[in-house]
């Protein structure tokens, strides 16, 4: 009895300690974003100060936040939808019409994900340049879809595999052909799985910072690029940097908090139940 109470106390202290430590940089970033530039660099750091929104106003003035945010949304959603459009049929085929090659196909798909983007940066850059799609949203949508396709296929495959085979067999006894089996049985049964796959894909797209930095400059630039433009200022611009960072991560952070349970299901790639 006594030891279990001590254990609980220990868990509370350590658990909260670790959580606050990990969260502190984010907390500090948000806090700093409400400071004036002077307060932001005060030493020792201030926890109490007169909050102000002036940094946010200045950030919006200097760079059109909504423009970048809209790009982020459009590119992430577009990339995710495109990836799903390709991946759902593929995962369905592999999960329910497997052949001797299915396993190696899946492993091959995953291995394309190991291909480092830098290895192919040069040709993609030149290709984009000659196709005239540098700094366009559609160019980035295609890249993001391809980038996430292996992981999306893999996740959907594991979710489809979880659908009990007997239910689909019952459907076949009941006369459901491939089409109706898909629409009436498989899709409704795997909505949670598809949702968590889409969630992960959205987060990966939103935070992607290699292709966006190298293939966009302004017109199609998402928030990752917007933020990178704040990388030079030092000292006096801490508050503005924090404000820009806060508004860049806030949407996906809130989204991630709300969906963390579904996300976990997908993240474990079916390897952990």
């Amino acid at each position: 009895m006594r030891s279990s109470r001590r254990q609980m106390l220990l868990a509370t202290v350590l658990g909260w300690g670790a959580a606050l430590l990990l969260f502190f940089p984010i907390f500090w970033m948000v806090l700093t974003s409400f400071k004036s530039e002077i307060a932001a660099i005060a030493t020792p750091p201030q926890f109490l100060f007169a909050p102000t929104l002036e940094s946010y106003a200045e950030v919006q003035e200097r760079a059109d936040y909504l423009h970048f945010a809209l790009n982020s949304v459009l590119i992430s959603v577009g990339g995710t939808l495109l990836a799903l459009a390709f991946a759902i049929p593929a995962a369905y085929a592999m999960a329910f019409h497997p052949t001797a090659r299915t396993r190696s196909t899946l492993l091959w798909m995953l291995s394309t994900k190991m291909l480092p983007p830098v290895g192919v940066l040069v040709p993609i850059y030149l290709l984009f340049r000659s196709l005239g799609i540098l700094d366009t949203r559609s160019g980035l949508v295609v890249i993001y879809a391809l980038m996430n396709l292996p992981i999306v296929v893999w996740m959907l495959f594991t979710f489809f595999k979880e659908v009990p085979g007997e239910i689909l067999e019952a459907g076949r006894m009941d006369g459901a052909r491939t089409g109706s089996e898909f629409w009436h049985l498989l899709l409704p049964l795997s909505v949670p799985g598809i949702a968590s796959t889409a969630l992960l894909s959205l987060i990966l797209c939103w935070n992607e910072a290699f292709w966006s930095l190298n293939l966009t400059t302004s017109e199609a630039a998402p928030l990752t690029t917007f933020i990178a433009s704040f990388s030079s200022p030092q000292g006096l611009f801490f508050a503005k940097l924090s404000a820009a960072s806060t508004i860049a991560v806030a949407p996906i952070l809130v989204f991630g908090w709300l969906s963390q349970r579904q996300l976990v299901r997908g993240l474990t790639f079916g390897a952990v139940k």
Binding site: L22, I26, N207, A209, L223, S245, V249, G256
Partner: peptide, 14 residues
């Protein structure tokens, strides 16, 4: 788990 949702550019700058 929040840091996972923060984009790399932001976490680096922060």
């Amino acid at each position: 788990i929040s840091p996972f949702f923060v984009m790399p550019t932001v976490s680096a700058l922060v």
